[in-house]
Amino acid sequence: MKRYKIEEKVFNVLMKVATGIILLSLIWILATIVYKGLPYMSWDMVSRTPQGGFYMGKEGGVLNAIVGSLYLAGGSTILALFISLPVVLYLNVYRRKKSAFSTFIRSSLDILWGIPSIVYGAFGFTLMLLFGLKTSLLAGIITLTLLIIPIMIRAMDEVMLTIPKGLFEASYSLGATRFETATKVAIRKTLPGIVTAILISFGRAVGDAASVLFTAGFTDNIPTSLSQPAASLPLAIFFQLGTPVPEVQGRAYASALILTLLILAISLSSRYFTKRYLKNKI
């Protein structure tokens, strides 16, 4: 008994240390990005596109990448929503009962969720070759859409699963069809949760680089049509860091700060909606 008491004390310390290390690593990462990036932050960084000689240390900013990332993430989030919502409603309203088929669907989605983004990128590339597309905003959006569909479906599925059966029964007993129950009751009931799922997916799309590497290309201009290539923040950071010029590397840090702030803002607002969702739950 005494041995266990000592063991428990030792492990208790170890557990707290482990938790500390995990939290510390997050704080360390954020602090490093802020510390390194802040000195290079300027209004130019967020308001201008790269000018001539930007990658040698001359003037400009990464507006091209910021806008590019927002276009890519925005486009793919909207597309993914159009595909995810029917799937989630199907799973939770039409196939509420447990069945081999719904288990199969969820398992397939879990596996899709686990596929690395670089594989989606490579697949997107084969699609591009197949359809004769060039690296473009459109190709990037399509690839990102595929990447975030499983993320979005999973997040929405989780909130829809919390709808009590009684609510469905109440709607049905008023003579509502399943479709009416899905659109008028289920969606309304989980709206904050759906918004959270959308934000999580948007965040993933903003931060992902490996899938757009092959497909969206990179450009110093802000794309004006779907067929033009588009820059993205992660790739801008990656490329700037790869240059030997200290000034440009500094800008990579500043770009990383911009990306981090963007992600934090998305993450915080999704927390806000989750909280609201929990509050609305009866």
């Binding site: 990462i29 903003v206 931060g207 992902d208 680089a209 990656f238 990383a256 990306l259």
Partner: peptide, 12 residues
């Protein structure tokens, strides 16, 4: 931590 993009981890 789960939401931080890969490239940020890389730069760190």
């Amino acid at each position: 931590l789960a939401g931080i993009p890969s490239v940020i981890f890389g730069i760190w």
